[in-house]
Design a protein around this nucleic acid. Structure first.
Length: 485
RNA sequence: GGCCCCGUCGUCUAGCGGCCUAGGACUCUGGCUUCUCAAGCCAGCUACGAGGGUUCGAAUCCCUUCGGGGCUACCA
């Protein structure tokens, strides 16, 4: 019987989900979808001092926004829940107790200070630092003494002699000798579980078949396997591990606030489309095998396999993300483009959101669609259509106040005023015949002056389309106003 | 320090012994087009970290070395 594929994304929300988290989530999701398996979302909130409800809510929101819908997890439930580790405390307590009874684990009374001291000594002696096994075989008297001193005990897993070898789906066979994997803590002094316990117990109980996670967890894998053994899990029921390479920043360190934006929330506000983020992230550490780079979510689920994931780390490149985002924006149907753009316009207070405004935006969007790489550029592009107190940009002022420009603007008014049909074609025809053919001006010079007068800037969407959208009255008013500058 | 992972253009990658005088994409440079800016099209620059093997033949396999990264917590 083939084991059903169950893949989990299990972040510890100690902050906003970042680029690395999402790349992992994306691969988890894509693999589940590719295989027709189940995508589980589990919150690892065993570190109550660092995880907050806000971060958990934000993580849920981010995953939704990206379109990585989970089949089991917070808010959707599932038969292996609950999916917040903070709600599974009794389960971990049960197993910890069992491990102690089986002598797989033991109480350790060493204080953090004592441990730190001994680690320091180990470092100085150039010995592998790690727990020295002091409390492994305490006598009843010793335990009584420690308790008498009011010491709290942690639960520590006993690592037997030998080694652990497992096959990583991306890296091949990996082996660790246990002398380099010291006895590790499962339960804190206050009785709360640690990741080392919870992650292993949950992956087994939730019947997770594939653990795709960051490379930083590679060296903790022997500890998970040790817990499986203590739980009495059959070898066939171990999940397959696949450790994804890091996503790094510009300076060759893990991506962080210092060398690039990490928070997905930031990318959302900066005007990136979820599909662009996913497309770009999919290409970081994975490739479809051919020269395709523009990949839809659907294609990703069809093509994604763990075998094609790279083992080497990848640098995050904002430029390429922007290029892909621009491609995705250009490919957007008008209605979708409008839906994405509107929030940016209202947030920038360019429009308040009336139906009239929205209609103008909708007619204007096509002429800026191929001119932006991020949605947050839309307000600046369309501002000239809505601004109440129109003014020419300071840096463009001098280019419209010289004598030559004045001549152009005067002539433009003369030619445009009698127009009865106000379309970009009629505007262009009128201006071209007068300014270019009759006055003999270069198009970029003549139209440049009109552009500044009408849009306030040397850079704008196509001039004649812009004037059509602005309307005859407003266009002529602005040209007249420029003449008076 | 120890253990583990990784090493193809500036960046992301294709490549899994001959199809590679190494392909694509982003960036950059030049050009075309053009009412500005874009978009589009064309062209160009630039890579197998190094040294040994194995082989008729290596980017591809092995070893060493160098470099980078991770872990080494009562974080995950």
């Amino acid at each position: 019987m083939v084991k059903p594929v169950r893949v989990r994304f299990a972040p510890s929300p100690t902050g906003d989900l970042h680029v690395g988290n999402i790349r992992t989530a994306l691969f988890d999701w894509a693999y589940a979808r590719h295989t027709g398996g189940t995508f589980l979302f589990r919150i690892e909130d065993t570190d109550t001092t660092r995880v907050t409800d806000e971060y958990i809510a934000a993580a849920i929101d981010t995953l939704r926004w990206l379109g990585l819908q989970w089949d089991e997890g917070p808010e959707v439930g599932g038969e292996y829940g609950p999916y917040l580790q903070s709600q599974r405390l009794d389960i971990y307590a049960h197993w910890a107790q069992k491990f102690i009874e089986q002598k797989d684990a033991y109480h350790c009374y060493c204080t953090p200070e004592e441990l730190e001291q001994r680690r320091e000594a180990q470092r100085e002696a150039h010995v592998a630092p790690g727990y020295d096994g002091k409390c492994r075989d305490l006598t009843a008297e010793q335990i009584a003494t420690y308790k008498g001193q009011g010491r709290e005990a942690v639960v520590r897993m006993r690592m037997p002699d030998g080694s652990t070898t497992f096959v990583d789906a991306i890296r091949g066979e990996v082996s660790f000798e246990h002398k380099f994997v010291p006895d590790f803590v499962l339960v804190r002094g206050d009785g709360s579980p640690l990741y080392t316990l919870a992650v292993a117990v949950d992956d087994i109980l939730m019947k997770v078949s594939h653990v795709l996670r960051g490379e930083d967890l590679l060296s903790s894998t022997p500890r998970q396997i040790r817990v499986y053994q203590a739980m009495g899990v059959a070898l066939d029921d171990y999940p397959t591990f696949a450790h994804l390479p890091f996503v790094m920043g510009q300076d060759n360190a893990k991506l962080s606030k210092r060398n690039g934006e990490v928070s997905i929330a930031w990318y959302r506000e900066a005007g990136f489309l979820p599909e662009a983020i996913c497309n770009y992230l999919a290409l970081l550490g994975w490739s479809p095998g051919d020269d395709r780079e523009n990949i839809t979510m659907k294609e990703l689920t069809e093509l994604f396999t763990v075998e094609r994931v790279n083992s080497s780390p990848a640098r995050f490149d904002m430029k390429k993300l922007e290029a892909i985002n621009g491609d995705k924006i250009r490919a957007l149907p008008l209605d979708e483009f409008l839906a994405w753009a509107l929030p940016f316009l209202t947030k920038a207070k360019v429009i308040s959101g009336t139906p009239e405004e929205i209609a103008v935006v909708k007619s204007a969007l096509p002429i800026i669609q191929e001119r932006i790489t991020r949605l947050n550029e839309v307000p600046a592009m369309l501002k000239f259509l809505f601004v109440k107190n129109f003014a020419v940009e300071a840096e463009s002022l001098s280019k419209v106040t010289d004598a030559a420009s004045k001549d152009v603007l005067k002539r433009a008014i003369t030619e445009l005023t009698p127009l009865t049909v106000w379309t970009h074609d009629s505007i262009e025809a009128a201006l071209r015949s007068s300014l270019i053919e009759e006055m003999g001006l270069k198009p970029r010079i003549a139209f440049g002056s009109v552009r500044i007068a009408v849009t306030g800037s040397t850079i704008s969407p196509p001039l004649f389309e812009s004037m059509e959208l602005l309307g005859k009255n407003a266009s002529l008013e602005r040209i007249s106003a420029a003449l008076a500058l």
